[in-house]
Computed example of a mutant assay.
Amino acid sequence: MKARKKVTFTALAASAIMALSGCATPASSPSGSEAKGLDKLPIRLNWTFEAADHPWFFAGMVEGIYAKHGIELQPQEGTGSASTLQLVASGSDPVGLVDAGTMMGGVGKGLPVKSACVLAQRNPMSAIFPAGAGISSIRDLAGKTVAVTPGDSLSQIFPAVLAKNGMSKDDVKLVGLSDPAAKQNSVLTGASDAFLGYYTLQLPAVEQSSGKDMDYLSFSKLGVDTLSMAIVTNTSWASQNKELLDRFIKATQESVDFVVANPAKAADHFVKGVPRFDRELALKQIEATIPLLHTKATEGKPACVTEESDWKETQKILVENTGLQEKPLDLYYTNEHAQ
């Protein structure tokens, strides 16, 4: 059944689909005397700074929350969860933001990584398409062309969605496009029938930039409601830097609390860090992202803290639909830094 919940933004959205390739680190990163005496901590994001669904880091830097905890946070752009996971596993980056399902697949392959915090605990992944495309169920995608970004979290999880609904990758025509804007444009021009994206981010951005009504099929409503965006560490680095990791997670929790209480200020802080981004669009995306912070099992708990039952359900979905081998759940995550 189609999951339809329109998200209407009044902002110009052209900046939302513009890759900010010239912005390797945000403009608000402290430097020089501001950073004196702080522990530098790079964090590799899952993607570029083109969407405001990770406002906690930018707000925490501008508000001085990370500095208060002795940290100079250095967000770095990524090219998808799979590549970020590899960088963390290799030790090139100590910390990364990675889709939880993608991380679990990596753990299954022996990668030395573990989640220290899950920020987005509900999943906004979806297949997005023009409202008049005649698509009202997953079965309507059979034989149609779906644009994906190879290696990102959506492409990793989509096979599970198909399998959960009695389909396989052979039932759809997947076309890989490395540029997210190209993925979206391929649908707008009719080259593809649908693309994979977040209904909280890409759907409203495309509606505003194109003037066309869009619709979507939510992965969660199609039976694949997995934990979403996790802060993942290299296990060797984490064991050698426990005190720094404790401070980082505590600062991130405080930053989340600030964003939840002050979404408008968080939007201001985000565009201070990413000046080319549209401020009103940032606010709308932040407001759409905040409801993803908790599952029913974690409502009322601090940000980052996860429940075993949610990991168990996520693993069950992946075992049944992607070939993931079942592992002890404590290999995937720890709450010790978030308590």
Rank of each mutant, 00 (worst) to 15 (best):
K173P: 07
M167F: 12
H294L: 00
L154T: 04
C304Y: 06
F129I: 05
E254F: 04
G132I: 02
G273A: 11
A205S: 15
S178F: 14
L41M: 11
V88W: 01
S137G: 11
F58M: 14
G22R: 08
A338P: 04
A147S: 15
A205N: 08
A238W: 04
P291F: 05
M167Y: 07
A11N: 09
G166F: 05
A264D: 12
P159T: 10
V259T: 07
L281C: 04
H54M: 12
N241C: 01
S178W: 10
L20V: 14
V305L: 14
M229C: 13
C304N: 07
A11V: 00
A11F: 07
A297R: 02
F9I: 12
G80A: 10
F248T: 02
Q208E: 14
S126Y: 10
T334I: 09
V88H: 05
T10D: 12
Y198H: 13
A16Y: 01
A230W: 03
K316Q: 15
L283F: 12
K36R: 15
A267V: 00
A261N: 05
G197Y: 06
N185Y: 08
V187R: 05
A127L: 10
E320P: 00
T84P: 07
S186H: 06
I231G: 01
L119T: 13
K242H: 11
I17H: 02
M104K: 08
Q74M: 14
K144T: 11
V256W: 02
R139Q: 13
A261F: 02
K40S: 10
V148F: 03
G32S: 04
K173H: 11
G190T: 01
L177D: 08
T200E: 05
P26W: 04
R4M: 14
W237R: 03
I286P: 00
L201W: 14
F57N: 06
A89K: 01
E77V: 13
D171C: 05
D171F: 03
R247H: 12
L97C: 12
Y332I: 06
V118S: 01
